[in-house]
Simulated scan of single mutants.
Amino acid sequence: MAYRINVQVGRRQLLLYQDNRLIKTYPIAVGKMLTPTPTGSYRIINKQANPGGPYGAMWMGLSRRGYGIHGTNDPSSIGKSVSHGCIRMYNQDVLELSRMVPIGTQVVISR
């Protein structure tokens, strides 16, 4: 089973595909105007549970240094453009996602 993640910055949504079929859509927070979420194609290169601080319950690092998909200690931020460029998710959502997608999963970020 091949997974792929598509992040739609403008819609503030993360779409999870399995074998090219959409299986789940999650609400997210994205980068603010001065620190936008970078567009492009990346891979998940690492995972860390309970990384501490503002990263919530899970960190999944992207192949673009310094960026990742992570939980949050501020759930009211989801749906907004407030991060330093990372993709924020509700903690329960990022935990669910991290259980499904392996390291190496493609992440395509578009406006």
Rank of each mutant, 00 (worst) to 15 (best):
Y3M: 03
N73T: 11
N50Y: 12
S77A: 08
Y42A: 01
A2N: 15
G85S: 10
P75M: 03
K24P: 04
N20T: 12
G68Q: 05
L14R: 06
V9Q: 05
M100P: 02
N46L: 10
Q8V: 15
Y90W: 10
L15N: 01
L62D: 00
H84N: 13
R111A: 15
G52P: 00
H70P: 02
A57I: 04
S81P: 09
D74M: 11
I109Y: 04
D19A: 10
V9E: 10
G61F: 08
I78R: 05
T105K: 07
A57H: 10
H84L: 14
M89K: 01
G71C: 09
R4A: 12
Q106M: 15
N6D: 15
G56M: 07
M33C: 00
A49E: 12
N46E: 10
L22M: 06
V30H: 07
A49K: 14
S77Y: 07
K80P: 02
G104I: 05
V107H: 06
L97D: 01
T72L: 04
V7T: 04
T105A: 04
M100K: 11
M33R: 15
R99I: 05
R43I: 00
V108T: 14
R111K: 11
A29R: 11
T35I: 13
N91H: 02
M1V: 15
W59R: 07
Q13V: 14
V9R: 13
Q106S: 13
G85H: 06
C86H: 05
M1W: 03
G52D: 08
R111Y: 13
K32S: 00
Y26P: 00
L95Q: 09
Q18K: 12
R64Q: 13
G68R: 02
L62S: 07
A29F: 12
D74S: 14
T37L: 06
A49P: 11
M58L: 13
T72C: 01
R99W: 13
H84D: 10
T37K: 00
N20D: 14
G56N: 05
T37I: 06
D19R: 00
Y42L: 09
L14M: 02
R99C: 03
D19I: 03
V107Q: 00
P54Q: 04
H84Q: 13
R12E: 01
